[in-house]
Amino acid sequence: MTQPLSAQVFPNGARVQRLRVARPTDQLEAVVQFYRDGLGLPVIGQFEDHAGYDGVMLGLPDAGVHLEFTRLQSGSPGTAPSNDNLLVLYVQDGSDLTLFEASFAALGCLPVEPENPYWLGKSLTFQDPDGWRVVIFDLSASQ
């Protein structure tokens, strides 16, 4: 996160440079492996024992958008709320789907049936170790 990023101007005039989505997990190492090796997101930061938390941040190559996974050393965050809590990545065509499918297969992770039938036939859905889902959507299939 050392590169300066250009800000996006929001409708209210605020300039936003980064977006981080953070969530807790009981399985930090397995979740990091899923997003790092399955999706290919590089680790862009990490910390240990910061006020009782460990964490890892993974992001797009420019670090403008990233995910943070934290583990509370003294407790559990519980399970994913539903099968329809999604992180969606939009790819250009079916060949990109094939690349992600191969990456996840190497981890022993096969696609799962999406909760919402909208995603059928134009995407692949994968479930992370905590039960949260990632959809890889083929933009060319929706045209």
Rank of each mutant, 00 (worst) to 15 (best):
L97W: 02
L120F: 14
G59R: 09
R18V: 15
V9R: 15
L89Q: 10
Y35N: 05
Y53K: 04
L110E: 07
H66L: 10
A106D: 09
L67P: 10
V134T: 10
V9M: 12
D84T: 00
F69I: 03
F34P: 02
K122H: 08
I136E: 05
T98H: 13
F100G: 08
T70D: 14
R133A: 10
P11F: 11
A7R: 13
V135W: 00
L107F: 01
L19R: 06
V65E: 10
F100T: 01
F104Q: 02
S6Q: 10
A105Y: 09
R71D: 10
I136P: 05
S95F: 06
Q73H: 12
G40C: 04
P61I: 00
A14E: 14
V134R: 02
G13Y: 04
H66C: 12
E101Q: 05
D93W: 14
A14T: 15
A63K: 00
S82A: 14
A80I: 00
P61M: 11
Y53G: 13
L19G: 11
D93Q: 05
V134I: 04
Q8D: 15
R23H: 07
S76N: 06
L60N: 08
R23A: 05
N116F: 03
A80H: 02
R36S: 09
Y118R: 07
V56C: 08
P129C: 04
L110H: 13
Q73P: 00
V112E: 05
A22G: 14
T125A: 06
G55K: 03
A80T: 03
C109W: 08
F47Q: 15
S123M: 01
E113N: 09
A51C: 03
D49E: 06
F104T: 07
V56P: 08
V135N: 12
A102P: 10
S76G: 06
K122Y: 13
L86A: 01
E113D: 05
G38T: 00
A51F: 11
R15K: 11
C109P: 04
L39E: 11
L99F: 11
L5P: 15
P77M: 05
T70W: 07
F69S: 03
S95K: 05
E48D: 11
E101I: 01
L72Q: 09
P81L: 03
P77Q: 11
A51M: 15
N116Y: 01
D49I: 07
W132E: 05
V32T: 08
P11C: 10
L89I: 06
W119M: 04
L72I: 12
L58I: 09
G38E: 02
S95Y: 10
G121M: 03
A14L: 15
Y118A: 13
D54A: 12
I136R: 01
D128C: 07
L107P: 02
G59M: 09
D96E: 07
L87Y: 11
E48G: 13
A7S: 08
I44W: 08
V65D: 01
L58G: 08
F100D: 09
P11W: 10
P24C: 00
D84I: 00
V21W: 14
P24G: 14
G78I: 04
L28M: 06
Q33V: 09
D96V: 03
F104H: 07
S95E: 15
K122Q: 13
L41A: 15
A30F: 06
S74I: 12
L120K: 04
A63T: 15
T79H: 04
D96N: 05
F126R: 04
P42F: 14
S95M: 05
E101T: 04
P129R: 02
